[in-house]
Lab assay of single mutants.
Amino acid sequence: SEEELIEKAEKLRKEFEFIWNGIRFIIRENADEIRRFEELLKE
């Protein structure tokens, strides 16, 4: 039914948001290391 689809979509959206926030947190935490690594690659 349509309601089930909406519920599934909402659940997926929440899971995606949770994963995305996790990725963003990891990137933020490691931003300095990532930048340093990029500098090494440029040399």
Rank of each mutant, 00 (worst) to 15 (best):
F18C: 15
W20F: 03
I26R: 00
R35Y: 06
R36G: 02
E17P: 00
E2V: 13
N21V: 13
E4N: 10
R36P: 03
L12K: 04
W20P: 00
K8L: 14
R24H: 11
R36F: 10
A9R: 02
E2C: 14
F37M: 03
I23H: 03
K42W: 13
N30W: 15
A31S: 05
I26A: 01
L12N: 02
N30E: 03
E4G: 10
A31L: 09
L12S: 03
E3V: 09
R35S: 11
I6H: 13
E2M: 14
E10G: 03
F16Q: 01
L5C: 10
K42G: 09
I26K: 00
F16E: 01
E4W: 14
R28H: 07
F25M: 06
L40Q: 02
F37A: 02
L5I: 09
I27D: 01
S1T: 08
L41K: 01
E10P: 02
E33V: 15
K42C: 15
A31I: 12
S1Q: 09
I6W: 11
K8H: 07
N30L: 15
E17I: 12
E43G: 09
R35E: 05
W20M: 01
F16G: 02
E15S: 06
G22R: 10
F18D: 02
I6M: 09
E39C: 03
I23C: 15
G22L: 15
I26E: 04
L41C: 15
L41N: 01
I34H: 01
E33A: 13
L12Y: 06
F18H: 04
I26N: 01
I27K: 00
E38I: 15
F18T: 02
F37P: 01
E43D: 10
I34N: 01
K14P: 03
R28D: 12
R24T: 11
K14G: 07
E7L: 10
S1F: 11
K42D: 03
G22S: 12
E7N: 07
E2F: 14
F18R: 07
R13T: 07
R13S: 05
E15D: 10
D32V: 07
N21I: 15
I27T: 01
E15K: 13
E43F: 12
K11T: 12
D32E: 05
E2T: 09
E7I: 12
F25V: 05
D32C: 15
E17S: 04
I6A: 08
E15P: 06
I23Q: 00
E10I: 08
F16S: 00
S1P: 06
F16H: 01
I19A: 00
E3F: 11
S1I: 13
A31M: 12
E38R: 04
E3D: 10
K8Q: 10
R24E: 13
I19F: 11
R24S: 13
K14I: 11
I23D: 04
G22M: 15
E7W: 07
A9K: 04
L5Y: 03
F16A: 01
K11D: 11
F25H: 07
K8V: 09
E43T: 06
E10L: 08
E2L: 14
W20D: 00
E15N: 05
L12E: 03
I34S: 01
R28S: 09
K11A: 09
I19N: 00
N30Y: 15
K14F: 11
E3Y: 08
K8G: 06
I27L: 12
F18W: 14
F37I: 03
E3P: 05
A9D: 04
E38F: 15
F37W: 07
I34A: 02
W20G: 00
E17Q: 06
I27H: 00
E2Q: 05
K8S: 11
K14R: 08
L12R: 01
D32M: 04
I23K: 00
E2S: 13
E2Y: 13
E4L: 05
N21T: 06
E38D: 06
F18E: 04
K11E: 08
A31N: 03
E15H: 14
E33N: 13
G22E: 10
E39W: 07
E4T: 08
A9M: 10
L12P: 03
A9F: 13
I27E: 01
E2K: 09
K8R: 07
E43L: 12
E43N: 12
A31F: 09
E3R: 07
F25Y: 12
E33F: 15
E10W: 13
R24Q: 11
K14Q: 08
E33D: 05
R13D: 05
L41V: 04
I19W: 09
E7V: 08
E7K: 08
K8W: 14
S1K: 03
A9V: 10
L41H: 01
F25L: 08
R35W: 07
R24V: 14
E17M: 10
E17L: 13
F16L: 09
G22Q: 12
W20H: 00
E33Q: 11
K11P: 07
K11C: 15
L40Y: 07
E3H: 09
G22H: 12
R35H: 06
I6E: 08
E43M: 13
E7A: 05
R13K: 09
E38M: 14
R28T: 08
K11F: 12
G22P: 00
A9C: 15
K42P: 02
R35K: 11
E2P: 09
I23T: 00
L41W: 11
E3L: 10
K14C: 14
W20K: 00
L40C: 13
R24N: 09
I6G: 02
I6R: 10
L41P: 01
E29D: 09
E10F: 02
E38V: 14
F37K: 00
D32L: 13
I6Y: 05
I27M: 03
E43K: 07
I6K: 08
R36M: 09
N30T: 10
I19Q: 00
I27F: 10
I19D: 00
A31C: 15
N21L: 14
L5G: 06
I27Y: 04
K8E: 11
D32G: 05
L5Q: 05
K8P: 08
S1R: 11
E39M: 07
R28W: 14
F18L: 08
A31D: 02
S1W: 13
E29I: 14
E38Y: 14
E4R: 07
R36L: 11
